[in-house]
Design a protein around this nucleic acid. Sequence first.
DNA 1: ATGGTGGTCCTACCA
Length: 255
Amino acid sequence: MKIASWNVNSLNVRLPHLQQWLADFAPDVVGIQETKLEDHKFPDTALLEAGYRSVFAGQKTYNGVALLSRQPAQDVQIGIPGFEDAQQRVIAGTVGGVRIINLYVVNGQDVGTEKYGYKLRWLEAVREWVRSELAIYPKLVVLGDFNIAPDARDVHDPAVWNEQHILTSAAEREALRALLDLGLHDAFRLHHQEAGVFSWWDYRAAGFRRDLGLRIDLTLVSDALKAEAIDAGIDREPRTWDRPSDHAPAWVQLA
DNA sequence: ATGGTGGTCCTACCA
């Protein structure tokens, strides 16, 4: 089973890319972030024609998440239970006996800002929810745009992307570590140790052309799935297409 | 290091 995560940065603009990539890559499940679409505008019919069922939680202009799957998702959950949030950043469902939690983690703007505080509170709420989900669903995948680069190998310039910088700050990395400590594994690092494999390149300053990227799109697998996670990676191909998302899809293959 | 680009919506805000 191939499970993927892709921040499309507007599904309205990127639907042709998504359709092409679904045909090329043929994932079984995809978590989508930044759809930026209200639910009545979600292209579920077009995706069904591509062979995928959709569940989604969107809003106007910002955020918005969806879960696409060849088989219908069961027990769909929108939002973090018990955590009031006006922003649509979470959708979960069960496909083929695997619980999949799709996250669009708060960006956080800059260290110390109000949005940064929201990011850390949000991550804490996610962690406590994932703790309870793991107790119910040992076979769990947490994927999405984490807006956190796990370590120095995951940034093009560790001197710039340091412990004071957004996406790499100490508190953000500690929040990711606390999530992993529940019994999750960064699937990419189970199989690849090299530095310089990125999933996001800033549109600004010709980031992709110069390969000034970060790896912030992750697929985490639970202890019970660790042996089944036979490979993971990032598909840079759609980032080379005309008018691309700033993110490339991250994926994990389960045996 | 700064500023640069892109999406939404049309004026800034977010990333």
